[in-house]
Nucleic acid binder design. Sequence first.
DNA 1: TTGATATTTCCATAATCATCGAATCATGGG
DNA 2: CCCATGATTCGATGATTATGGAAATATCAA
Lengths: 114, 114
Amino acid sequence: MNADAVIRALGALAQEHRLAAYRLLVQAGPEGLAAGAVAQGLGVPASSMSFHLAQLANAGLVLARRQSRSIIYAADYAAMSALMAYMTENCCGGAECGPDVACSSPLLQAKDVA
Amino acid sequence: MNADAVIRALGALAQEHRLAAYRLLVQAGPEGLAAGAVAQGLGVPASSMSFHLAQLANAGLVLARRQSRSIIYAADYAAMSALMAYMTENCCGGAECGPDVACSSPLLQAKDVA
DNA sequence: TTGATATTTCCATAATCATCGAATCATGGG
DNA sequence: CCCATGATTCGATGATTATGGAAATATCAA
């Protein structure tokens, strides 16, 4: 993953409706949700949601597939992992990080997180 | 961490110079770097870099402390962890995620990541 | 106090982004 | 073919953001 892709991904997530849509899709799991279901679930007009979902897809954060008349969006979990890897790459210059730094230990243990 | 804080953090990182600065600070470790060192390291005018560092600080991603004439910025590693936790919260609706989904397993193992 | 260094604030300009109704495109049933 | 449904594209408007030189603010040394 290069800087440009990372910036697109972060930019895609840095917006109220897109962040909410992404979380909805993360919670929906690999099955995904139809575009209309996302729009309705978030109370956003279809054309606006379409714009936002397209941005998420373009950023590589979600995958779209057509299923009959619906277009199903699903979170791409690997993309999120790649994002985090990029941010924390070569943390502390490769030195062993202390427990307070915690960039080499498994992140995202809910208890460790503010 | 609430949605607003997450959006500010993601928005702060979704910019070429800020992403580069943040990575530089992550790699620098807890000691941090002076504002001028970051600007010089990235070849960005001081006033522009100051603007960007202020955004990172405002988003809670970096910590600033004065040391004599310099202002030292350092990555706040906990903030990044909180960010990821928010994104993957209640992944797959709480069901056990498969190995291909990997949102409940330790992320950021470089080998698992694209 | 004077001078040098480090950083930030100010400001105007340029560029990018979000919104959403209406029109358009794609699919499938009868 | 015709109609209904689900989704995207278009387009104009308003809002936010990035840029960098010049001026202002802090700190320190002599």
